[in-house]
Simulated scan of single mutants.
Amino acid sequence: MNDFVTVAVFDYPHEITVLKHLLDQAEIDYFFENETMMNIAPMYSQALGGIRLKVHPEDAETVREILKKLNDESNLKIV
């Protein structure tokens, strides 16, 4: 996990719900740094630097593509 890189940063836990499903479906190893703290005290988001999506460097480009598709205007917006 020390070699994992940050691919994206989110402010609130609800923003990562669908993304978790997509990453699991793609069988990508990942973790969200600060996720637990944001669930306990969401007002600390800015102080802690948000929820950081960490992935292995080999998967970074694939994850960026997933994020790009998720944020595409043609998709339904969850949030």
Rank of each mutant, 00 (worst) to 15 (best):
M38V: 09
I51S: 03
E65M: 12
P13T: 12
Y12M: 10
L70M: 15
T17F: 13
T62N: 02
D29K: 15
I40W: 13
A47Y: 09
S45T: 14
N39A: 01
F32S: 05
N75T: 05
A41P: 07
E27F: 03
L19N: 11
S74Q: 14
D24C: 04
L70P: 03
V9P: 00
A8E: 03
V63T: 08
P42D: 09
A26P: 04
S45I: 03
K69R: 15
E61A: 12
F32I: 01
S74G: 02
I78R: 14
E33Q: 15
V79L: 14
M38H: 07
D29T: 15
P13N: 08
F4P: 03
F4G: 04
E65P: 01
T62F: 01
Y44C: 14
I51E: 09
H21A: 12
N75W: 01
T6D: 07
A60L: 02
A26K: 09
E33I: 02
N2R: 10
I66Q: 01
Y30D: 05
V18G: 04
V55W: 01
A60E: 08
E65Y: 06
S45V: 05
N2E: 14
L70Y: 14
P42H: 09
M37K: 15
V63Y: 07
K77I: 15
V7A: 00
Q25R: 14
